[in-house]
Design a protein around this nucleic acid. Structure first.
Length: 271
DNA sequence: ACTGGCTCCTGAGGGC
DNA sequence: TGCCCTCAGGAGCCAG
């Protein structure tokens, strides 16, 4: 599923190919994504030039002078940059044709993704306005986690995946960062010391950067991951490794559902 | 202010 | 071989 590193890789691919290009045509083949794709997007986007391609959490922001296209890949979405003549896949739901004779297709077989058109400041949009700091920005550190977690009884795993605390940490990277930091995923967020949050924040940043570096390599051709966790999968310590030995101590890795998500951890290394 | 549970959807995988 | 069943999973939303 597209996690923050895949979305960032996608952003870089779009930025390299679409910046300064003009939207020639928009075709919505199936408007039934997470929220119905509004006609205003098809009406107002043609003729507009892409002035920037940004990312906030796992949202992609394609800005024009008339408004911003906000995209979310959900859990099975991908964006494909292809020649317009390429035959359609049955789950290609939206198509944007550009002035450089490239076509971008939003493919999403589960349709948990979203395409939202807004004329206003996208950061003021309800979906973005309450988001916490970007994990790779200077605004994020152990202090943020420590301050925000005081008094909270929810598990640290759920806490990390709450976008209002820190933006864009998905299930895979919550699992991985907690393993690297040696913190048990079911521990109450409010009962973790400052020093451990400092280390956790460092590990969140490091694991995301390492994965982006991998994504940047394996997804260079930009065909989208389409449900695949990406080639960073070979470097995961816990996610997808239930029943296998811990790379650090050899203990068999355990699976528990925490925060409604599969959580894999080492009960010896994580306390 | 928090917290946990529900929801959308389809392909994959297991059982028989 | 094929059919049926179950389930994962991002994150907004809502009730308690």
């Amino acid at each position: 599923m597209p996690e923050l590193p895949e979305v960032e890789t996608t952003r870089r691919g779009l930025d390299a190919r679409l910046l300064g290009q003009t939207v020639r045509a928009v075709k919505v083949r199936n408007p039934h994504l997470r929220w119905r794709v509004e006609d205003a997007m098809s009406r107002e986007l043609p003729g507009q030039r892409i002035v920037s391609v940004d990312r906030r959490a796992k949202y992609l922001l394609l800005r024009t002078d008339a408004g911003t296209l906000i995209l979310h890949l959900g859990m099975s979405g991908s964006l494909q940059v292809v020649p317009p003549s390429r035959p359609f896949h049955r789950h290609d739901h939206i198509v944007w044709d550009f002035s450089n004779d490239l076509s971008v297709r939003f493919r999403d077989h589960r349709r948990f993704g979203a395409a939202i058109w807004t004329r206003d400041d996208p950061f003021a949009h309800k979906l973005l306005s309450a988001l916490g700091p970007e994990p790779l920005s200077n605004a994020f550190d152990g202090g943020v986690l420590y301050e925000r977690s005081r008094g909270r009884r929810a598990t640290v795993k759920a806490f990390l995946m709450d976008g209002r605390v820190v933006a864009g940490i998905g299930n895979i990277y919550a699992n991985e960062a907690l393993f690297r930091a040696g913190i048990h995923p079911a521990r109450a967020a409010g009962r973790i010391a400052r020093g451990r949050y400092d280390r956790l924040a460092d590990h969140i940043r490091t694991v995301l950067r390492e994965s982006i570096d991998r994504g940047g390599t394996t997804l260079r051709d930009f065909v989208g991951s389409d449900g695949d966790p990406g080639h960073f999968i070979a470097h995961l310590d816990v996610y997808g490794r239930v029943g296998q030995p811990c790379r650090r101590c050899g203990e068999v890795l355990k699976l528990r559902v925490i925060a409604q998500r599969s959580t894999v951890y080492c009960r010896r290394c994580q306390r």
